[in-house]
Amino acid sequence: MIQNLFDGILVGSILSLGAIGLTMVMHMLRFANFSHAELLSLGAYVTFVFDKLLESMVPALSQTIGGLSLTFSLIFAIILSMGVTGVSAIIIDWLVFRRIRDSAGPLSMVFASFGVALIVRNLISLIFGLKPKLYSEEITFAVRVSLDPLILIKLDQVFVLCMALVIMLIFHFVLSRTTFGYALKAVSENPTLSQINGVRLALMIRLIWLIGGGLAAVAGVFYGLNNQVSFLMGKDLVLSLFAAVIVGGIGSIYGAVVGGFLVGLASNMALLILPSGYKPAVPFLIILIILSIRPTGLFGEKK
């Protein structure tokens, strides 16, 4: 029980990071972006490349930190990858979504993003192959915190969780204390009015893609550390990410964080009530229940 709770929070923190960017895009640009999860896998693979590059250039960086499977080169690689993934998101928007945005309904955007997801996913597999990759083949053992009830915790897990929380906290301060945060709020509430007040909408859109892509890259790497880096990551994660956004309420960044944790917890607690074969359905059934009580999600605005 406690074990499931802890594991749920870990998976949840990864989903939360991915969901923040998705909810921002869904709210600002008014469409469900199916290619967002591919940014996670793009970020994970770009990190993989930088990590291997850095390791071969500066072998000293391949040293692991403390009891983690994390290396210094991986940390630098993540930072580089955040930038690359964010810029890729801007490029995709410029190539595809910007052109459809003005002339058609949101569903055309949704299915254009579905097409983009197919292209990105399979380009990745064409370049990197179909087999999953690992950042480190070493297995780090869990620490037995207690025997009864059984509680096992991996240091990597704690690190990932802390990092995710730190990133969310930083993001929270940016939103609530900076001009950019206010501008973002203004734009999401009323794009036209905010433009009158001197907010540059085009710039804001680019920033949103940059941040969303950056956070997605981190989430992708954390997922890869916890699982494997595979071209199917996007496909495997896209629905959980949407579930997190929806259950939190579209547009609510705090909702996305809570939603991520909720979905993570739901899938880890699922086995307590149902056989493991039914696990994929459980998070969605919980969402169904929450939505039947709160139709616009936990933190969504009612229109």
Partner: peptide, 20 residues
């Protein structure tokens, strides 16, 4: 007897269930 579904974000819940 634990079913493992394809493409799950994490298999820890299944593993923990078996470890119990």
């Amino acid at each position: 007897s634990i079913a493992i579904n394809d493409g799950q974000p994490s298999y820890r819940a299944e593993v923990v269930e078996a470890l119990k």
